[in-house]
Simulated assay, not measured.
Amino acid sequence: MDNTRVNTTSVSLISDLKEITKMRLAISVVFSSVAGYFLGADSIDFLTVVMLAVGGYCLVGASNAYNQIIEKDLDLLMDRTRNRPVPSGRMTVNTAFFIASSLTILGLVILYMINPRTAMFGALSIFLYVSVYTPLKTKTPLSVFAGAFPGAIPFMLGWVAATGSFGIEPGTLFMIQFFWQFPHFWALGWWLYDDYEKGGFFMLPTGKKDKGTAIQIVLYTLWTILVSLIPAFGMTGKLYLTPLSAGLVLILGLGMLFYALQLYRKRDNASAKKLMLASVSYITLLQIIYVLDKLIRVWI
Rank of each mutant, 00 (worst) to 15 (best):
M113F: 12
Y196P: 02
Y240W: 11
D45F: 05
Y133T: 00
I153Q: 01
S101N: 15
T8V: 13
K274R: 15
V49A: 04
L219R: 02
R5H: 13
H184S: 02
K238P: 05
Q68R: 12
F258V: 07
L261Y: 07
A62R: 07
A187C: 04
S12F: 13
A146L: 02
M276C: 09
A123R: 03
I217E: 04
A53L: 12
V93N: 05
Q181A: 11
L292E: 08
P154T: 06
G212C: 10
F31M: 13
I168P: 04
S43Y: 15
G167R: 08
T134C: 04
S12D: 15
F127E: 02
L13Y: 14
V11P: 08
T138N: 12
D16K: 08
S32N: 14
V86R: 08
Q216I: 02
M120H: 09
S63E: 06
T206L: 07
V249K: 06
K18E: 13
P170S: 14
G189W: 03
T213I: 00
I110N: 00
V132E: 02
L124Q: 00
I215H: 11
G36K: 11
A161S: 15
L219H: 00
F258S: 13
T138I: 14
Y220H: 03
L136E: 04
L250E: 10
P170T: 13
T213M: 05
M203G: 02
D2T: 09
L17E: 01
F178L: 15
